[in-house]
Design a protein around this nucleic acid. Structure first.
Lengths: 204, 204
DNA sequence: GTCTATAAATTGATAGAC
DNA sequence: GTCTATCAATTTATAGAC
């Protein structure tokens, strides 16, 4: 008996739901499709998760955790800020590359679904902005980096990491003649490009 | 009689459709809601536009034109590249600020809706990447800017302009305590921030 | 051109057998 | 726990009166 046989029905449903919701969005998802993907009966979805809404909630929470990197853990150290930024960019781009649909899904649902649930999920993710901001200010005071707005900096970093994935179909068509392999190579060079651009913008 | 009374039913429908589709997305839009928004009967939607699909197509084409700036017009001139970039960033951020939901809408539909219609619309927009690329290379050869990959450059510019709008709800909550006015001020400074970052990255 | 009425298909959710 | 059958509501689309 292989280990995959041991996956519980509840897990099978959640896995299937993640796949379908992230790919099609909340409004575009059909409960039937999740059931098919999980290889089970549609009624079981309601047995384990009362409603589509509740199933979506579970998926969104998972997706948001993937999306929102633990910046507070990376930036709290006493390490070299340039090194920390490089590690952050590299690991974040690696992360998105493994989950390329997550950014579009999260951004879209957050914009369309202005419920208290979404707001709460974002807050509950417990991203500690203060620790990061302190870290940046300390490096400014110590004369290691230029006078920099920490919020502009982090928005710059995340913008540059995410857009090549969210905007991939457009960029690939317009700038790469819809050549998939060429675009993959473009993404390869992206880590270095973004790191250099950011480091260059804060170093004295 | 005011001029607004002269708006044809067809126009009223398209205006209403733009509003609802861009806000709720293709899958989340209901024909009834468009009819209500236009103040007309639901049947008229089908009279003027045969189906939801066709109405969506009209809206998407409009939205994509807004989204995809005419880079070929801006960059074909013999003007100073630094000036051209500044103008491009300023006018693009101004444009998105007037249509803040367009980026999320376009990016989302492009990723979820992998039909030939979407691909064709992107191609038909007729964005002339070559003219832009030539312009950048000319400036490199003339020693005005550093050795730069034109595609990385344009992706950098657009990333930095768009993400603060697509990711607004998250950033506003995490970094600005959900304070709308503070976020508006943040966006105000964004034009200068992006321009400086980009110029700084290409100047010798 | 614009409306009412309604068809036809889809879809989230529940009841009840096993 | 899992399935079949089915309800009830929604939603796109059309027919036909005016």
């Amino acid at each position: 008996m292989t280990k995959t046989d041991k996956i519980s029905t509840e897990e099978k449903i959640l896995d299937a739901a993640k796949k379908v919701f992230v790919e099609k969005g909340k409004a575009g998802t059909r409960m039937q499709e999740i059931a098919d993907e999980a290889g089970i009966n549609k009624s079981l979805l309601h047995y384990y998760y009362r409603s589509k809404e509740k199933l979506f909630s579970a998926v969104f929470k998972f997706a948001f955790k993937k999306f929102a990197p633990g910046i507070e853990n990376v930036f709290e150290s006493d390490k070299d800020i340039f090194e920390v930024i490089e590690i952050f960019i590299h690991s974040y781009i690696d992360l998105i590359r493994k989950n390329p649909f997550i950014p579009t899904f999260v951004l879209n649902e957050i914009n369309k679904n202005k419920t208290s649930f979404i707001t709460e999920t974002i807050k509950e993710a417990g991203i500690n902005a203060e620790k990061y901001i302190e870290f940046v200010y300390k490096n400014i005071e110590n004369g290691i980096i230029k006078e920099t707005d920490p919020r502009q900096l982090i928005v710059n970093i995340i913008s540059l990491c995410i857009f090549p994935f969210a905007g991939r179909p457009v960029i690939q068509i317009i700038a790469f003649d819809n050549n998939k392999e060429e675009y993959e190579r473009f993404l390869d060079t992206r880590k270095k490009e973004v790191t250099e651009l950011i480091i260059n913008s804060i170093k004295k």
